[in-house]
Every structure is written in structure tokens, then in C-alpha cells.
């Protein structure tokens, strides 16, 4: 493998890692604070991708994608708020069993709604005109959009970090992770905080879905595809850890990138991800950055 080829794969892996990190960070944020593993996270991502597609095609090449992104984040955030208020509030503190089944049910409902509203056909979304060009590096051509995705992930990741560790909201969220009851007795409206956290998680899923839309065909099974990968990332990195999501996303993104390059390994790229999960869990059953949960 030449150096240029290697770079090609690495950049491909980084752009995978970029959107996967954004999505997995949302999953981790929600799990960390609400202790709910949101099976419908991929569904929110899918809603955003479809909304981006519809709006982008309406608005044209210059503004379309950006408008789509904004609308997608708003729509998905609202759906998230609805889910939190109607469903999740009732399952906080329940067994994982109940939470898994409730959010699993949401994946079925959302999949049905998305297929009914948008149809099951593939859609393509054009990148915004400003970054719709290619760059040549070491003899290979790269879509500028790949670098945009990587940059977006860096910005979003930094934003999440600042929010969590430099703001009052972040401090309250971290407090809610450890003791929501005490937080409520410390003058913080925990119910509202939970809604905010879930909407933030949904917004991250939406950003991931909107940003990924121009780089992939938007379709009605992307909920499952991303969910499996986001779970793999969470298991590798450790549920509830944002840093874990980053490391997990980098690992999974690169493994997929290298895996799909070869025609023999291509169909089984997911198998490599799986093998890494097994190895990590053998060494650290709660993921690289996860905290052991009470059994």
C-alpha cells in the first residue's frame, strides 16, 4: 500500500469517525445523564437526514444544505422534546429492560412514520456549493466535503466539551449524572434539565444525520446502520463517556475505512468492528472509558 493510498484510507476513516462521533456523543450524553440507552437515537439521525434532503432540494445549491441543517436540527429537537416528555419521563429509573423495550418501540414507530412521510426510496443530497469541490493530495483526489465533516466534528466536539466543563448547564448535567434527587433538592429543575439534555442529544443526532446526508445516500434503513455503529462505539469507548465516544469513533471509523477497501473484507467490515468490541470487552468489560455499573 502506497503512502498516498494510506492517506486516502485514513482520511476516509476520519470522515467516518467525524459523523459517528457526533452521533455517539449524543447517545453518550443522554445515557450519562438520564441512564437511558436510547435505541431511537439512530431514528432521530434518520429523521434529520431526510429533512435535510427535502429542505436542501427545495432551497437550491447555495443555501440548501445549510437551511436543511438548521431545519433538521430544529425538527429533530422538537421530536426529541416530544419523546422525552411523552415516553422517557415514564421510564426513568426503571429497569434497563423496560427502557430498552420502550425506546425500541420508538424505533419501530419512527421507522414507520419516516417511510410513510418520505417513502422508502433513496435520496441524494448535494453538498453546499461552497465546499463542493475536490482537492488533490499525494496523487489522490479528495472531496472537500470530507474535510468539512472532520472540521465540523472538531468544532462540535469542542463545543460539547466547553458546554460540559465550562458552563453552569454542563455542571448541572454532570451533577444530574451522579445524583438527580440531590440536584433537585439543590434548587435545580431536574425535569426541565432532563428535557434539555435529551433535546441536546437529539440535536447531536440531527447534526450527525444532516452532515452525513451529502456524503451518503439517504435511505430508510440508516437508523439501524448508524445505531449498530454508535452502540459499537459506545461499547468500545464506554457508555456515558464523551471522550470514550471520540476514541471509539476513531477506531470504528478507521476500521470501517480500511475494511471496505478490500473486496474480500468489504462485506464483513462490520465483523472487524465486532472483533474489536470483543477484545475491548475482554480487557475492560465497561469499555475503555466507561465506569463499572452496579450489576
Amino acid at each position: 500500500m502506497s503512502g498516498g493510498q494510506l492517506l486516502l484510507f485514513v482520511v476516509g476513516g476520519l470522515s467516518n469517525a467525524a459523523y459517528l462521533f457526533i452521533v455517539a456523543a449524543g447517545l453518550s450524553l443522554v445515557f450519562g445523564a438520564l441512564r437511558v440507552i436510547n435505541m431511537a437515537h439512530g431514528s432521530l439521525y434518520m429523521i434529520a437526514a431526510f429533512v435535510t434532503g427535502v429542505v436542501a432540494n427545495q432551497l437550491g445549491l447555495t443555501l440548501g444544505f445549510w437551511g436543511g441543517l438548521v431545519v433538521a436540527v430544529i425538527v429533530t429537537g422538537l421530536v426529541g422534546a416530544l419523546i422525552e416528555v411523552v415516553v422517557l419521563r415514564r421510564v426513568y429509573g426503571e429497569e434497563h429492560l423496560v427502557q430498552l423495550l420502550a425506546t425500541y418501540a420508538l424505533t419501530l414507530v419512527i421507522a414507520g412514520v419516516v417511510r410513510t412521510v418520505f417513502g422508502a426510496n433513496y435520496r441524494t443530497v448535494k453538498p453546499p456549493a461552497a465546499i463542493n469541490f475536490s482537492v488533490t493530495l499525494a496523487g489522490n483526489s479528495y472531496a472537500a466535503y470530507s474535510f468539512f465533516m472532520i472540521g465540523a466534528a472538531v468544532v462540535i466536539g469542542t463545543g460539547v466539551y466547553i458546554l460540559m466543563y465550562r458552563t453552569t448547564l454542563g455542571r448541572n448535567i454532570r451533577a444530574a449524572v451522579s445524583d438527580p434527587e440531590l440536584l433537585s433538592a439543590s434548587g435545580v429543575n431536574v425535569a426541565r434539565l432532563y428535557t434539555v439534555v435529551f433535546v441536546m442529544g437529539a440535536a447531536l443526532a440531527a447534526l450527525g444525520g444532516a452532515i452525513v446526508a451529502p456524503s451518503q445516500a439517504v435511505n430508510a434503513s440508516m437508523d439501524t446502520d448508524v445505531l449498530v455503529l454508535a452502540f459499537a462505539i459506545s461499547v468500545i469507548g464506554g457508555l456515558g463517556s464523551i471522550i470514550g465516544s471520540l476514541v471509539g469513533a476513531l477506531i470504528v471509523g478507521e476500521v470501517l475505512s480500511f475494511g471496505v477497501q478490500n473486496q474480500y473484507t468489504n462485506p464483513y467490515a462490520i465483523a472487524f468492528v465486532f472483533i474489536i468490541m470483543v477484545i475491548v470487552l475482554t480487557i475492560r468489560p465497561w469499555g475503555l472509558f466507561g465506569k463499572a455499573e452496579q450489576t
Partner: peptide, 30 residues
């Protein structure tokens, strides 16, 4: 509860409960 405990009532629960993942200062500022 979150409004009762804003300046009216302070509650110190049993078991010296704190937010273990926050710093001492953050616990106090909260």
C-alpha cells in the same frame, strides 16, 4: 422541591451525599 430549596430551605441528606463527580468547589457553587 427545586423552588423550595432555592434559598428557603436547605436539605442536607443522610449519608453525606454529595455530587461525587464534581469538584468540591463545584459542589458548593451549585
Amino acid at each position: 422541591s427545586y423552588r423550595r430549596t432555592k434559598g428557603h430551605v436547605a436539605y442536607v441528606p443522610s449519608g453525606a451525599r454529595c455530587f461525587p463527580n464534581l469538584t468540591v468547589q463545584e459542589n458548593l457553587e451549585l
